[in-house]
Computed example of a mutant assay.
Amino acid sequence: MFNLYWADERGFPPGDRGAAYGDGLFETIRMHGDRGVLLSRHLDRMVRDAGRLGIPIALTDLRKACTAAVTRYAGRYTNQQAEGGWVLKLTLTRGEGGRGYQPGMGVRPNLLVSSSSMPIAPAGSGVAADFSRVPLTVNPLLAGIKSLNRLEQVMASREIHGDLFEVLMSDAGGNLVEGTRTNILIKELEGWVTPPAKSLAVTGIMRQWVLEKLRSRGEVVVERSLDIGDVMGSQCLGVYLLNSVMGVVPVRCLAGQDLPVGDGLATIFNPLELLE
């Protein structure tokens, strides 16, 4: 079991290891009323990745916290349902205790629950993006985990200004990895291409769902390394950004170059069909 905290009452205690060391992880879930988009996948990922970090948490306890959050928060966003609902955020840390990096004995996890309005939806005609100058290093031990260690993404997000929606980050070898808050999917003549899961800082829930959906329709999906030439060359028929709150976002302009925006993913994501 964990200690439950509500963000609108008070935050974590001063000695929380999440604030001190980034010792934890989080989930951001798109909600409509009392139901969430791909909710089970979000909760399953939190339990699974908490296990990878050695933070004990039961799925039943997490579901109870979500039920309490809906009771507490959903009514605040009643007038926003037509615009897309609201956002539920779950932040789980190892807890409070232990001097320095080593956790103390018997540390009990902390869960902070918060809510917010949905962000403004990106234009359906596509968004502008650029390449980040901040390299992204992915530790194989932590690959895919939506941990609280997001300083590289914070630094890269400072490059987003004006009409830019996102910047795309590369690893030290020049391979495109992901955006500051999105996974990358490109369309080529032979099919769809995305960076492999093992190379990602965050293996997104929307990424997983979209790849499964495409494969179920018989479309070719390849996971391989991407470089700038893959997305800026003539073989690229479209670049899409995947995010669990905003869904599937086409890129119409990348680093000042216009990109094609096809309709291959136009109807694949309907949040109202994915509510649980």
Rank of each mutant, 00 (worst) to 15 (best):
Phe12Asn: 07
Pro13Ser: 14
Asp16Arg: 06
Gly18His: 02
Ala19Phe: 15
Ala19Cys: 12
Ala20Trp: 01
Ala20Pro: 00
Gly22Cys: 06
Asp23Phe: 05
Gly24Met: 01
Leu25Tyr: 09
Leu25Asn: 03
Phe26Asn: 00
Glu27Cys: 13
Ile29Leu: 14
Met31Val: 01
Met31Ser: 02
Met31Thr: 00
His32Leu: 11
His32Val: 09
Gly33Trp: 08
Gly33Ala: 14
Gly36Val: 04
Val37Cys: 07
Val37Arg: 03
Leu38Met: 10
Leu39Pro: 08
Leu39Asp: 11
Leu39Met: 13
Arg41Asp: 13
Arg41His: 10
Leu43His: 03
Asp44Gln: 11
Val47Thr: 07
Arg48Asp: 14
Arg48Tyr: 05
Asp49Val: 11
Asp49Thr: 06
Asp49Phe: 08
Gly51Thr: 06
Ile55Leu: 15
Pro56Lys: 05
Ile57Trp: 11
Ala58Met: 07
Leu59Glu: 10
Thr60Ile: 08
Thr60Gln: 04
Thr60Trp: 00
Thr60Gly: 09
Leu62Cys: 07
Arg63Lys: 13
Arg63Asn: 12
Arg63Met: 09
Lys64Glu: 15
Lys64Cys: 10
Cys66Trp: 05
Cys66Leu: 02
Thr67Leu: 03
Ala68Lys: 01
Ala69Gln: 00
Val70Ser: 07
Val70His: 05
Val70Thr: 07
Thr71Phe: 07
Thr71Asn: 13
Arg72Glu: 01
Tyr73Lys: 02
Tyr73Pro: 06
Tyr73Val: 10
Tyr73Trp: 05
Tyr73Gln: 06
Ala74Lys: 09
Gly75Met: 04
Gly75Lys: 08
Gly75Leu: 10
Asn79Ile: 12
Gln80Val: 05
Ala82Phe: 08
Leu88Thr: 04
Leu88His: 05
Thr91Arg: 13
Thr91Lys: 14
Thr91Trp: 03
Thr91Ile: 15
Arg94Phe: 02
Gly95Glu: 03
Glu96Lys: 09
Gly97Ile: 12
Gly97Gln: 11
Gly98Gln: 11
Arg99Tyr: 11
Gly100Arg: 14
Gly100Gln: 07
Tyr101Thr: 06
Tyr101Lys: 04
Gln102Gly: 12
Pro103Asp: 08
Pro103Val: 11
Met105Val: 08
Met105Pro: 07
Met105Asp: 12
Gly106Val: 12
Gly106Phe: 04
Gly106Trp: 03
Arg108Leu: 08
Arg108His: 04
Arg108Ser: 12
Asn110Trp: 08
Asn110Ala: 14
Asn110Glu: 11
Leu112Gln: 03
Leu112Met: 10
Ser114Leu: 04
Ser114Asn: 05
Ser115Asp: 08
Ser116Thr: 08
Met118Thr: 05
Met118Tyr: 05
Pro119Phe: 06
Pro119Ser: 09
Ile120Val: 15
Ile120Pro: 10
Ile120Arg: 13
Ala121Asn: 01
Pro122Leu: 10
Pro122Ser: 03
Ala123Arg: 10
Gly124Ser: 02
Val127Ala: 00
